[in-house]
Structures are given as C-alpha cells and as structure tokens.
Simulated assay, not measured.
Amino acid sequence: MEVYEKINLATTDHGFSGKHIRVNHLSVAYQGKKAIENVTLSIKPGAITGIIGPNGAGKSTLLKGMIGLVKPVEGTSLIGDVNIREARKHIAYVEQRSAIDLSFPITVEEVVLLGTYPKLGILRRPKKAHKAKVLECLKLVKMDAFRKRQIGELSGGQLQRVFIARALAQDAAIIFLDEPFVGIDMTSEKVIIDLLKELKSIGKMIVIVHHDLHKVTEYFDELIIMNKQLVSYGPVNKAFTTANIQQAYGNTMGEIIIKGVRD
C-alpha cells in the first residue's frame, strides 16, 4: 500500500465496500439475438476477477449488462441489496480503446478530470483540489509528463494508462475494465497490473475482460468463463481447468498447454 500512503485517493467509504455483486438470470440481446443468456454468478469484493472466453462469447456484454450500459431483456444485478444501476457513480468503467474517438480534441489531463465529475454535481466546476488529484493520478500511472498532450498523440499503452488514471480520479469502489491489455506495450501492462493489485489490497473490486489465457493465474484471484452462457466461475485454482477451457473454447483447445491450468 505504499503507493496510497503518498496521496489520499482510495479511502472514501461509499457504502459499497465489502459488498458482493450478485448477477441473477441476466440475459442481453442485440437485434433479437441473445448475446448472453441466463447468467447467474457472484463477484467478490477485494479481489481481481477475470472474464475469459472466445471471441463473441459475451464477455464485454456481461459487463455492460450488469451496469446498464445495455438493457438486459431479463435478470438483475445487485451490489449488496441495491440495484447496481443505482450505484453507477461508484463504478469506474474503462471501455475498450477501439470505442474511443481519438480525433476528439481533448488533452490527457482533461480526460482524467472527467473522473471527478460524478462527485461534482450539476453545473459545478472542478476546483483546485480536483486538479491536484488529476496530477497525482497521472503520476501513479507514470503519465504526468504527458498531461498536456492530445489523446490522439498517445500510444495504445499510454492511452490505457490515462483511462486507468481517470478511474482512480473517480475514487470508485468498483473498477470494470474491458480488454485493457490488448495491443499495449509490456511496460504499460506492468504499470497497470501492479496498480490494480495495489487497489485490490485496499479493498477495491476489480473486474477485467481478458484475452490472454497464459496470464490468468498471474493476474486473477477469481475467474468467470463465458461462452454466451456461464461455463464456470469461482477461484482461479478451481475454475481454470482443461475441461472448462475446452467447454468454452471447443475441443481445439485440448492439445494446447496453458500455463497454470489446474489439470
């Protein structure tokens, strides 16, 4: 927790610390076609949970359906006893980089400042303290030297670090990240995962859609395996098995040796 002794970022009690997310019979459809169907699971606080599965398995849809970015056709998502959509300002959502318009004229520090807006309220302007917090968050992800840059000038790894800084500035109890490590450099990946582990150590709930099976045991405490329906979830050492991987990805995965797979 050395990183957090320098600044006061993640100590706010939102009333959601220590609460599980409970997803009950969640289904989401696009143009009448089910993207995920009848998903029921529980996500632990104070842990890093990975969501894995093949392309088109509904991993990103699961995140979006939970927090209401897409409307479920059925099912609920609760944090504690509260509908998760009522807790949205306490959830930081880091979207895929491909969803961002990099031509939009906004600087690095302006992006991170957006993270403070949920607490500002309507028509209130950021104060000096908010701007100081932005700088501290950028220092944590080692991007403070780039604060005046336009986002379109950044590499993929640099941009992803800026999005993590925005999530830090939000001081959210829960952080959802959609494919944060796709197409980024190893330095950025290490900065991000080390920081996420620090956040976990102070009780944050972190949920990551992920693509690299070889990093599963290194990065995650809990695992959700999807292929439109739930294949398995639970502690990595129980969920990450050859049988579950074959069920999600098909028998073509059967001959591949995956680092850390339980059996």
Rank of each mutant, 00 (worst) to 15 (best):
T11L: 14
V261R: 00
F146Q: 02
I67Q: 07
T116C: 15
Y219C: 13
Q96I: 10
A169F: 07
E110G: 07
L63R: 12
F220C: 12
I193M: 15
L9F: 05
T49A: 01
V134W: 03
A99R: 04
S188E: 06
I100Y: 04
V216K: 06
D81Y: 08
I48D: 03
P54V: 07
I206V: 14
Y233F: 15
R125I: 10
I256E: 02
G115C: 07
L113A: 11
A57R: 04
R149D: 00
A92F: 04
E37C: 05
Y249E: 08
K131G: 06
P180R: 04
T217K: 13
A165M: 10
T12C: 12
F181Q: 07
Y249H: 05
I43L: 14
K197E: 14
I184E: 09
L140W: 01
K190A: 15
Q160R: 03
Q246P: 01
Q158H: 00
M143L: 06
H211E: 09
L113N: 08
I91N: 08
K19W: 03
Q158Y: 01
M205E: 02
L168T: 10
P45M: 00
R85Y: 06
I122G: 05
S103D: 12
R124H: 12
I7H: 13
R85A: 14
H211L: 06
T49C: 06
T49H: 00
Q246T: 10
G203E: 10
S42F: 00
S201R: 13
S201T: 11
N244A: 08
T242M: 03
T107Y: 03
V134D: 08
T116Y: 06
Y219E: 09
E95V: 08
K200C: 13
S17A: 14
G68L: 12
K34Q: 12
N251L: 04
I245V: 10
M66Y: 05
A10H: 09
K148N: 02
L195H: 09
A10E: 15
K131F: 05
Q31L: 07
V141D: 02
S232C: 14
I36N: 01
A172P: 03
L78R: 08
A47T: 02
